[in-house]
Design a protein around this nucleic acid. Structure first.
Length: 456
RNA sequence: GGCGACGUGGCCAAGUGGUUAAGGCGGGGGUCUGCAAAACCCCUAUUCACCGGUUCGAAUCCGGUCGUCGCCUCCA
């Protein structure tokens, strides 16, 4: 299988370093609810893991939680909460969101606040090796000592300086030097360190956690394209300088960003739909179909219509999986060809749009086979199995139940209509159907009786 | 200003040198139904932003033009 590596900017044959594929994914800053842009990223990396496991790799997946940084401190102050109160709340809500999306949890979620010792050890190591220097209570990474700095984002120090908005950086040796350890201001959470009371810079936590939990060199590191620079670039600088081993990460994977209107969806712009809001309107499968229907490295634009279209697609998949073939006889529909095509697509840098197309082709084949009385149990099993690799549940969207009084009223009306229909009083039957429609209830007459659904 | 990505049917979106340009949504037709709804089946781009070039052959490669987006600052 081939994976596009941001480092080489090429598709490369996937050859993990050892028996267990080590995978680190950049996690959230828990100061607010996660939005669909986050969903896109975590759905994709969950699919990466599911597919690797489907291909019989063992995977260890670690995802950090940044529970100390500027936005968190500011939000906690604004809301009159402590930092741990705030972050705990949003970590729990994030877990709920992921469970509702059918995104499997990582094996481990280390938190920045719990890994301060390891971070200090790395910063000290970098100072000892001359890759970092302290100015007062601040410690900076010395980019000049890293000749290949910029290799991930494919730029050079010179090109970064040209025309860029680089702050004066009075105390830094070079404007691109970045902070490893920050002197804390009064009232901020802080930890003792060799450089006085302070807190870690943003990038150091990922180096620390990745090294501590997955080793000095890992297979896969993922995140959004917006964290390529400076975050991941700086992680490489810190980690490789500290361990002396290259490469820190064998395969860098970056997903394209979710657009909202003309801009990317982001918390700072405020143009976002939270996962919770989205799941009120549509199913987890619809969000998967929406996200995976586009190649992960391309940007994807959110629109309500696109999500609705995805829901109808998801419904088509659901219907096929639960198709009843009890009346069918004779041969079984053979779906092996579809699995081959699915693999071929996924082997080509996780081409999920193609993989999904294979699933839809299989759906058509199942429907046609069912129509001519061929058995489809195995094929439907295959559809379910391959769908599972893409994180599809094939379940109906969750709805809050209606109160019993209303339910009884609906049942009564349906009974009245049944009686009217029996007496071929179509006019009364249609009146009742219209009345229910006005109540937001849609009827479907099936051979086994009338069922009702809420209008979506 | 620097670096990078992209422009495919009404909409979304694969394909990146050679059979009929995937798939989803929408639309049209049909089956089913008292009529519907739901579901299913069939049909739906001689053409890939534009202009040149390379080639026996290009949506796919090269050059240019126009347009869109991302990163360079917190960010999945």
């Amino acid at each position: 299988m081939k994976i596009f590596n941001s480092l080489s900017a090429k598709k490369e044959e996937f050859e993990p370093r050892g028996d267990v594929v080590t995978m680190y994914v950049c996690g959230i800053n828990p100061y607010d609810d996660a939005h669909i842009g986050h969903a896109l990223s975590y759905i994709f990396f969950d699919v990466v893991r599911r597919y690797l496991e489907y291909r019989e790799y063992k995977v260890k997946h670690v995802q950090n939680i940044t529970d100390i940084e500027d936005n968190i401190i500011a939000t906690a102050n604004r809301r009159g909460m402590s930092v741990p109160e705030l972050t705990q709340k949003y970590v729990e809500r994030y877990d709920e969101d992921m469970a509702a999306l059918n995104v499997r949890p990582a094996h481990l979620y280390p938190r920045a606040m719990g890994e301060i010792d390891k971070m200090i050890e790395i910063v000290q190591g970098l100072v000892d090796k001359d890759f970092a220097y302290a100015v007062g209570g601040n410690v900076y990474f010395r980019v000049r000592n890293m000749p290949d700095y910029g290799k991930l984002s494919h730029r050079t120090l010179d090109s970064m300086m040209a025309g860029a908005r680089v702050e004066a950086g009075e105390e830094k040796e070079h404007p691109m030097d970045f902070i490893l350890w920050k002197e804390s201001k009064p009232g901020e959470p802080s930890w003792d360190s060799p450089w006085g009371k302070g807190r870690p810079g943003w990038h150091i936590e990922c180096s620390a956690m990745s090294i501590k939990y997955l080793g000095e060199q890992i297979d896969i590191h993922g995140g959004g394209q917006d964290v390529v620079f400076p975050h991941h670039e700086n992680e490489i600088a810190q980690s490789e300088s500290f361990t002396g081993k290259k490469p820190f990460v064998k395969y860098w994977l970056h997903n394209g960003l979710l657009q909202m209107g003309e801009e990317k969806m982001s918390r700072s712009v405020g143009n976002l739909i939270t996962i919770r809001e989205a799941l009120k309107k549509c199913s987890a499968d619809a969000i998967h179909v929406f996200v995976l229907g586009s190649y992960y490295r391309s940007p994807l634009t959110y629109t309500e219509e696109a999500l609705e279209a995805a829901e109808r697609g998801a419904e088509r998949l659901r219907q096929a999986v639960s198709r009843d073939d009890s009346g069918s006889k004779g041969e079984e529909l053979d779906a092996a060809e579809y699995e081959k095509r699915f693999k071929k697509s996924m082997d080509d840098d996780f081409n999920t749009p193609q993989a999904l197309a294979v699933l839809f082709d299989l759906v058509r084949e199942i429907n046609q086979a069912a129509g001519r009385g061929t058995r489809t149990a195995q094929a439907r099993g295959m559809l379910k199995k391959l769908g599972d690799v893409l994180g599809l549940t094939f379940r109906e969207p969750e709805e809050a139940p209606l109160d019993t009084e209303l339910q009884e009223r609906i049942s009564k009306l349906i009974e009245e209509r049944a009686t009217a229909r029996k007496g071929k009083n179509w006019q009364l039957a249609d009146e009742i159907r219209n009345k229910l429609d006005e109540m937001g209830i849609v009827l479907e007459d099936t051979p086994s009786g009338t069922v009702w659904k809420r209008k979506r």
